[in-house]
Structures are given as C-alpha cells and as structure tokens.
C-alpha cells in the first residue's frame, strides 16, 4: 500500500503520547494512504474523548467528531493542543 508522510506536533499534556525518540514535541509519521486523523489517535493510544485543539497546516479544525474522519495527505503538519488560552 502507498504510504504518506506527515509531521506531528504535540504540545503540553499531549507530548506524552509522542512516539519514542521524538524531539522538541515533533515526530515524522508514515501512514497508509487514506489514513485519517482518527487513525493517529489509535496508533498513539490517545483517548478519543480527550478535549483538544487540532490544527492542520495552520487551519484550526472543528469539533472532535468531525475531525476524526479527516483524511490526511502527504506533507500535512498536524498540531494537537489541550484547550488553552488567555492573552
């Protein structure tokens, strides 16, 4: 099966779910073509219900249920945060 490569960036409490050997909260991942955001959660054992903010290529995504089915593509940068805020 064809593979795609993405960059995963995890912040704050989500850093604990990164694959071993990841540096500065970042990891390269090779996924099956057609893989979804939900697949990343499964591979890294991230509980689906954890509240989170998801950003793909700088675009902030909608609520979790919709985002889980989002199909990823080659070169995507996926950033995951817990809820944050306040300037």
């Amino acid at each position: 099966m064809e593979k795609i490569n993405i960059e995963l960036r995890m912040f704050m409490t989500f850093k604990q779910y990164l694959p071993e050997g990841s540096l500065e909260g970042k990891a390269k991942m090779s996924l099956d073509d057609g893989a979804t955001f939900g697949d990343i959660l499964k591979i890294l054992s991230i509980p689906v219900e954890l509240p989170k903010i998801v950003i793909i290529n700088g675009i902030i995504q909608g609520i979790s249920d919709e985002i889980n089915a989002r199909i990823l593509k080659e070169g995507d940068i996926v950033s995951i945060f817990p809820p944050v805020g306040g300037g």
């Binding site: 912040f11 704050m12 950003i55 817990p82 944050v84 805020g85 306040g86």
Partner: peptide, 20 residues
Amino acid sequence: VTHEALPALGTPVLVNIVNE
C-alpha cells in the same frame, strides 16, 4: 483554560498555538 492552562503556564501558553 482557567483551571489548567493559565495556572500552569500563564498567558505565554498561547505562543505555540498562535504560531501553529
């Protein structure tokens, strides 16, 4: 935000998310 993010990191918690 008020119970976790701001107490833990203060307002600089925003730097990474705003950058992403």
